[in-house]
Design a protein around this nucleic acid. Structure first.
Lengths: 338, 338
DNA sequence: GTGAAAGCGCTAACAC
DNA sequence: GTGTTAGCGCTTTCAC
């Protein structure tokens, strides 16, 4: 317990073992040029003195930090926490750390955090956009410095890089069609913030399904929640609006977890006077315990994290500049509950 | 869009402005010795060239990273995500970054992550122990290097530093007493992993309440979940065991969010043949929507994060070694639901 | 297979 | 109020 003793450095080890600092560095990095003998000796000694790499020095010199920055709206959101777990699983396996930041769907917070992450010497960035962002200058800024970026879930069309998304169009289409197959035609759609890529895609899927079945699209049945459902009042307003539609509604298609929760909460407050089939996007692990029952669409969040992390590491480790970028689409599972 | 151009350094700015690098550094750090004139000039120019501090260099030189490491079991756990938000709110205000790592309640993962965090040059650590940890050598190791540490929620008694906890004894006592006041005497207790501080404290509160009301303590009604409820089977086994008690049980006191969820899920699978009042610790924001209804104990998670962060920053910024440490206790709210 | 030397970008003592 | 200088701990050529 040598309290407050300065951590041992490579130099210390070199001195103690009567070899050069460069050899110690090589031995610790398992460099093939070093003899097994010295490697073992160095590594053993390093352990006894509780040696810890000074990442700052290493990063400064090698220009590699072996850490990935992740930017999500909220870690409390099940979808994102699952994505993070996917990212971590790949990152750790490949020798990378993960640094997480939250935008809380605020453009300002996102701006600051992207900047923090970028300056905090990460080797690359995994980004899912905040609901309140419609100006992408801050992203373009770091991207233009050569920082590798991969978007997931909520992407920016105009920035040319790797992206991983759910097949939102198809999934929303299928979900809407299920409602139609149950005989519902007056289907309200509670959407997320209008500028999000996922919002646009899901709405398009919903519209396409209506169209296919010759159900007229009624814009009064579509309500956006600019705060992403973060504000209970906006959800309440949206719900109230579609529920008071003169022609009535028969079912509800909800584009996000948080909006589902607030909708259900509000419906519960009305003491179950309204019986409305609900289907929506949710990766919550307790959605099955919530009453009234909601049917849900589960995205492949963990897998999305994995794919995104693999893309990013590929980008980081590429010896040559990458000019061709792919967008990978993942499927989702629809769980219908009567 | 000078694509792939190397980021500007302090030297570049110095050269362009015909001043020295140190003045630039001072100007960027808003040092009082620098004239307002040069400050403005430097900061303006820095902005035009999109200057970003190289944290690695800064940290290496100043031995300060202005970032706090946080170690929790799971960011998906509402209690922890709320704590993290509290930590962030204080950290940002005081100019610190937050780096989050998850143990997933695995001792091995915790070991690796503590090491990563420590080497990732954070100025201090906020730690909530994993459920599966009973050997604290890895913590003692980093602590002995002089790394400031603050424990929150799940603390290690034997390590002498600042700690923030919920008053688990009192809260568990009160909750148990509520059940008793409703006329229940056969109250089962589903506990978290036995080595966690919170488990011990909550169990003690439960016992004390029984004792006060002269209800005999029956160890058959107390079941631990070593995995912290991470494994549905362990919860199922625990439940099955107390439910099959020959003398029967009348109510359930559950010590953790995850264990509540798994309990409710299992009870639901039995098709509501069992009607059992449940009270438990939960910071979930959807606990009110779950059926059957559960009464819940809400900890001051956000506040706990704030207090812990303040303590840590105090520790970090202290000019002199700190020898007297406090443990702060926070209250919790009990929400009874009929 | 190992060593010597240079330097990453920044900060902070010291000088004036 | 500003400049000079040294060096944080590490990696990586270039020698041999």
């Amino acid at each position: 317990m040598n309290y407050l003793s300065k951590p041992a450095t490579i130099k210390d080890i070199a001195k103690a073992l009567h070899i050069s600092a460069s050899t110690v560095s090589r031995a610790l990095n398992d460099n093939f040029e070093v003899s097994t003998e010295t490697k073992v000796k160095v590594q053993a000694y390093a352990k006894t003195v509780n040696y810890r790499l000074n990442t700052a020095a290493s990063t400064l010199r090698s220009r590699r930090s072996y850490s990935l920055g992740v930017m999500v709206a909220d870690v409390a959101n099940s979808f994102f926490s699952q994505t993070i777990n996917g990212i971590e699983s790949v990152a750790y396996e490949r020798g990378y750390n993960v640094v997480i930041a939250q935008s809380h769907d605020s453009h300002e917070r996102e701006l600051i955090n992207i900047d923090h992450l970028a300056t905090r010497s990460v080797d690359g960035l995994l980004i899912s956009m905040s609901a309140q962002t419609s100006n992408y200058e801050h992203i373009e800024n770091v991207h233009s410095t050569g920082m590798p970026i991969v978007f997931f879930d909520r992407v920016v069309e105009s920035i040319n890089t790797f992206k991983v998304i759910t097949d939102n169009f198809k999934t929303a289409f299928d979900a809407t069609e299920i409602l139609i197959s149950k005989g519902f035609t007056r289907i309200a759609h509670l959407a997320n913030a209008p500028q999000l890529s996922i919002t646009v895609e899901r709405l398009a899927g919903y519209r396409a399904a209506l169209e296919k079945h010759a159900i007229p699209y009624d814009e009064n049945l579509v309500k956006f929640c600019p705060g992403g459902g973060r504000d209970a009042v906006e959800v309440e307003d949206a719900l109230r609006s579609v529920l008071s539609d003169p022609s009535g509604i028969e079912a509800l298609f909800v584009a996000s977890d948080r909006i589902i929760i607030e909708s259900v909460r509000w419906l519960n407050m009305l003491n179950h006077t309204i019986d409305l089939p609900i289907i929506g996007f949710s990766n919550s692990d307790v959605i099955d315990l919530i009453r009234p029952k909601v049917s849900f669409i589960r995205q492949s969040a963990f897998e999305m994290g994995q794919v995104a992390a693999r893309m990013l590491i590929k980008l980081i480790e590429s010896k040559y500049p990458v000019y061709t970028f792919e967008t990978e689409m993942l499927g989702a599972e629809i769980h219908w509950r009567d």
